[in-house]
Amino acid sequence: MKLSRPPRAAQSETIIALIDVVFFLLVFFMLIGRMDATAPFEVRPPMAQSGRDMPAGGVTLAVAADGSLALDGDEVSTQDLATALTSQLAQQPDLRLRINAHRATELRHVLPYVTQAEQLGVRDVVLVVTPERDE
């Protein structure tokens, strides 16, 4: 018995719809996503209603609940922080420092870095907050 292979249909037009959907998804994720370096530990920023929109740019200092530090996603020691900030300031004099501290972090692990940044010459320091209640 001779079985003949059915003729292959030409590429269907519905693939255009698939491309459209993928393209829309791509644009959607490109627009709403922020590509910040994430800290190597959990940081849940404190909640506040009066926060303003956070502009992009600058460096982010993440502070964990136990006081661990990360600068732009890389863990950093207290000693190395000053060096890193100084070199960043040399490249960008109007550097913005964003301090993203966990809401349970004790203030003795946060406020000294604001003072240190000010002493190094950083004039724009902001605290990261979230308007959302997530309990």
Binding site: I32, G33, R34, P45, A48, S50, G51, R52, D53, M54, R98, I99, N100, V114, A117, E118, V122, R123, D124, V125, V126, L127, V128, V129, T130, P131, E132
Partner: peptide
């Protein structure tokens, strides 16, 4: 996709 705001410290 965190909704983040800021409060100026300095």
């Amino acid at each position: 996709y965190l909704n983040l705001d800021m409060i100026p410290a300095l």
